[in-house]
Nucleic acid binder design. Structure first.
Lengths: 161, 161
DNA sequence: GTTGAAACTTATTAAAC
DNA sequence: GTTTAATAAGTTTCAAC
């Protein structure tokens, strides 16, 4: 694990808030001159603390107006069932996140759809069509606080057919 | 809603994958010359499709090795209870996301902690100390597929005291 | 750690097609 | 939409302190 001093943390906070901030701006913000600031940023990138940069895209602007969390319980927790489930998941662009969790369910999925019909279709045709899926429960997200606003969206999906 | 053609979508995909890609690189990738590409990117930014840019930070590198999803049920769903809960949530830096959802629970929280002891402490001292919280259930995230890798982490939290 | 300077790359704008 | 050219700005590297 790399050691981070308070200045490194300030740099991370700055680049987390604005990933396109120039080295000069970051340097001024954290109270360094550009040269050592640039060195620190490069060190943070090369050590993997900063994994990369991304545009934050607004799913609503792509016509995806509904976001849900779906909990999934598999019929059995065998490696075969898991890999069958995951490969089925892989092909669905509306799933932006898939978490394997402990507890009474096995997976949590984050799913973006454009309307209720698309949601119905996703649940019945995509999810419940997977043989090893025993039970699903859909929670519609009504509001988001403390969001990072960072949803990776499949931009190819909502376009002209 | 802004109209997006296939080239716009390619631009979004490119900047989602690498938010620091230069206009020249994006232009070449999508098959445009730099001038119109720059205009499109600016249009996407100004229309809110691109909300901003962010560094992707690896929470593990900050010493946060455990991520959990906590479902929370409130004793009653009154506006008072909700605002009491949300203001208590606001102060906790380990909570990186808070979703209001439909279904058998009221909120889903995403929480990063450095170890099990910090998790225990968070649940007992932070969460269950909120008066209106009736029930919580913690799911430890064992694996993440299809992650966007974009967790906004409070970089000030794990540093020297 | 700091400053300053040079070489290189990029962004932006304007003009012409 | 394209190309070209000019200006402005940022990055990187080097030296010296």
């Amino acid at each position: 694990m790399i050691e981070l001093d308070p200045i490194d943390r300030k740099i991370l906070a700055a680049l987390q808030a604005d990933g396109r901030m120039s080295n000069l701006e970051v340097a001024e913000l954290v109270g360094l001159s550009p040269t050592p600031c640039s060195r620190r940023i490069k060190r943070l990138e090369e050590s993997g603390v900063i994994q990369g940069y991304a545009a934050r895209i607004n799913p609503l602007a792509l016509g995806l107006s509904i976001c849900v969390v779906v909990s999934v319980r598999l019929a059995k927790q065998t490696p075969d069932a898991a890999s069958q489930f995951l490969s089925a998941i892989e092909d669905r662009p509306e799933i932006t996140e898939c978490l394997l969790v402990t507890g009474s369910v096995d997976y949590l999925l984050r799913v973006w759809v454009k309307d209720i019909e698309a949601l119905r279709q996703f649940i019945s045709e995509a999810l419940q069509a997977i043989p090893c899926v025993a039970e699903t429960s859909t929670m519609v997200i009504l509001d988001t606080t403390k969001s990072n606003g960072l949803s990776t969206v499949d931009t190819a999906r909502t376009g002209p057919r």
